[in-house]
């Protein structure tokens, strides 16, 4: 349980006091970027806050992060520390791309969930429809598009998860082909 005197640091970072270390870190990075650069949100209202005040806010953010990191390192490091995509941290891809793992839909879903990415966001960024992504994850092969489209979708999705797109797609399509061959045999 978080100690009481840490509450104000959580408040400065504007997060819940049961946030994981990775949430704390991501929020810290986000706020630091917001208040240290002339971002799209800060620029139009630059007059509202003197530079001195802004620096003071930055200093508070820095202090809050340092303190929380120190205090919670041991408590929350286990199982919660994953970097966000794009900032692939040393821990985040560990064990996910070893030869032994086959990239089934299930595995893709688990990787996504571990990175705390909602399917919705994947859809938004990859422009792949939600249903297709869902069908990919649940391997509803009969509902999926033709092989050449499917390969494209799986590659894009894999790339989004910062995986080796080709390896993932090859593996996925192999399973798809096996299913297809079986299905055709039955007919």
């Amino acid at each position: 349980m978080p100690k009481k005197n840490l509450k104000k640091y959580f408040d400065i970072l504007e997060i819940d006091s049961n946030a994981s270390l990775s949430e704390i870190r991501n929020t810290y990075i986000r706020l630091k970027k917001l208040y240290s650069t002339d971002s799209m949100v800060i620029t139009p209202i630059a007059d509202e806050f003197s530079k001195k005040k802004r620096l003071a806010v930055l200093q508070q953010i820095e202090e809050a992060y340092t303190r929380l990191k120190e205090e919670l390192k041991d408590e929350r490091q286990k199982s919660t520390y994953f970097g966000k995509p794009g900032v692939a941290s040393e821990n985040s891809t560990e064990g996910e791309e070893t030869e032994s793992i086959s990239f089934s839909g299930d595995v893709l879903r688990k990787i996504r969930e571990r990175r705390r990415i909602h399917l919705h966001e994947v859809a938004l960024d990859t422009k792949i429809r939600m249903e297709i992504l869902e069908n990919i994850e649940y391997e509803r092969f009969d509902a999926l598009p033709q092989e050449v489209y499917l390969r494209g979708h799986v590659s894009n999705y894999a790339r989004y998860l910062l995986l080796d797109a080709r390896k993932v797609a090859d593996d996925y399509i192999r399973r798809y082909k096996t299913w297809k061959a079986d299905a055709e045999e039955k007919v």
Partner: peptide, 11 residues
């Protein structure tokens, strides 16, 4: 959206 929320709080 998150940035705006932060600014409403801090400002």
């Amino acid at each position: 959206g998150s940035s705006m929320k932060s600014i409403f709080m801090k400002y």
